[in-house]
Computed example of a mutant assay.
Amino acid sequence: MESASYSQLFNTSWTLHRLSPLHHKKDCASLLNNQAALTTYATRLRDQLTGDVLAGLHSTANTADDDSLSKIGALRECRWQSIAAGSSTRDASDRRDANTSFPGILVTLEYENIVYKAALLAEPGSNPQRDPPSKGSTFLPLLLTKCPNALRQTFISFLSANFDAYCAPLRLPSTFLCKGLESFVDELRTGLGDSANEVVEEVIKELQLTLAFSAMIAPALRTLNVSISRASLTGFLSDGNSTSRRTLKQKLSSPLIANLSTYLETHLAMQLDLTGSSKNKAAKQHVRLSKASCAAFVLGGEGRMKLVVDVARAEGQDGDDAPTKDHLALRASQTLLRAVIGKAVVGDQTAT
């Protein structure tokens, strides 16, 4: 069976979970690039989804899930595939494109009327098979799923029963969303000089930020949407007067979040700690960024992600040409995905 293209990780709305190491010694020594093992687990999952356990799945599903599951038809195929490395033609000439291969497994559930997917990923350049083969353990810390909740829970139960794995929702704190947004912008601007802001405008277009408030301080105002139009992005990307208020580390990155915080404080009298650097404990406790979305990506604090990029166009350019908008967007999306995988690594306890 052919490997799955890593391009399937993009242009899909995923639900994020953190996953502990998969233990498979009782069945096989290795998992990745072991098609016999992947076929075995695909068969087991298919049997579970089409067998008597399906009745239990329906009995525990809510009404919305029952309606969706009743319309998808019969399960035609269940595939487990290793994810192939990216094939960017610029990898050899641009060191920022090194390690763009995402080791992992793509699970595809093809029903009569719809296709659901799940992906188990490790960081580029890492060795998921960290233990000696005799121990039979593979570490793929990030689980992405696109399916109804009842089906998702069945798949998580399958991973627990077959690999003795623990799975938990992956929440993205405000500081991570801010850093993710700035790293995305930084990657777009790197090496472009005067045209950097123009590229950011073309890729991001309009930026939507959702601020969430605790009920203690704003019982009637749970969220506030802040919209930054394409025409206003350049102003927020300029160092301007905020430079003196930023630390040396902050000055090396995009001033977007710092400028936004200054703007909200000046015009709305809202003192927000979006960067996590303020000593204002009330701001840290009661106000946070809960969602960042634009034409290029969506990141939700509740554990949702979508990276929008035309991989075929990005990888189809000549390696001698200057990087195009599509290639820069792909590079920035890869950076963001690597950050999310890193966040999923067990033991990362960054405060919200």
Score class of each variant (00 low, 15 high):
residue 6 Y to L: 10
residue 6 Y to V: 10
residue 9 L to I: 07
residue 10 F to T: 10
residue 17 H to F: 05
residue 23 H to K: 13
residue 28 C to Y: 07
residue 30 S to F: 12
residue 30 S to A: 02
residue 34 N to I: 01
residue 39 T to P: 01
residue 40 T to G: 05
residue 46 R to I: 13
residue 50 T to D: 10
residue 50 T to A: 14
residue 55 A to Q: 09
residue 73 G to T: 11
residue 73 G to L: 06
residue 89 T to W: 07
residue 102 F to Q: 12
residue 105 I to D: 09
residue 107 V to N: 00
residue 112 E to K: 10
residue 113 N to L: 14
residue 114 I to E: 12
residue 116 Y to I: 10
residue 117 K to S: 11
residue 119 A to W: 00
residue 124 P to I: 03
residue 126 S to C: 07
residue 134 S to Q: 11
residue 136 G to F: 15
residue 145 T to K: 04
residue 161 A to T: 02
residue 162 N to E: 02
residue 163 F to H: 03
residue 164 D to G: 05
residue 166 Y to P: 09
residue 168 A to I: 14
residue 169 P to H: 00
residue 175 T to L: 06
residue 177 L to P: 09
residue 189 R to Y: 10
residue 192 L to Y: 03
residue 193 G to D: 13
residue 198 E to C: 08
residue 203 V to P: 01
residue 204 I to M: 01
residue 205 K to C: 01
residue 210 T to R: 00
residue 214 S to R: 00
residue 216 M to L: 02
residue 219 P to G: 03
residue 222 R to A: 02
residue 224 L to H: 01
residue 227 S to N: 01
residue 232 S to Y: 00
residue 233 L to E: 01
residue 234 T to G: 05
residue 235 G to C: 09
residue 237 L to G: 12
residue 245 R to Q: 13
residue 246 R to G: 05
residue 251 K to N: 09
residue 251 K to M: 03
residue 254 S to G: 02
residue 254 S to N: 11
residue 264 L to V: 04
residue 265 E to L: 10
residue 266 T to L: 04
residue 270 M to I: 14
residue 273 D to T: 13
residue 282 A to E: 06
residue 284 K to I: 12
residue 288 R to I: 12
residue 290 S to H: 15
residue 291 K to G: 13
residue 292 A to R: 14
residue 295 A to R: 15
residue 298 V to G: 05
residue 298 V to M: 15
residue 307 L to M: 15
residue 307 L to E: 15
residue 311 V to Q: 13
residue 312 A to H: 12
residue 321 D to G: 03
residue 336 L to C: 05
residue 338 R to L: 15
residue 345 V to I: 14
residue 346 V to S: 08
residue 349 Q to S: 08
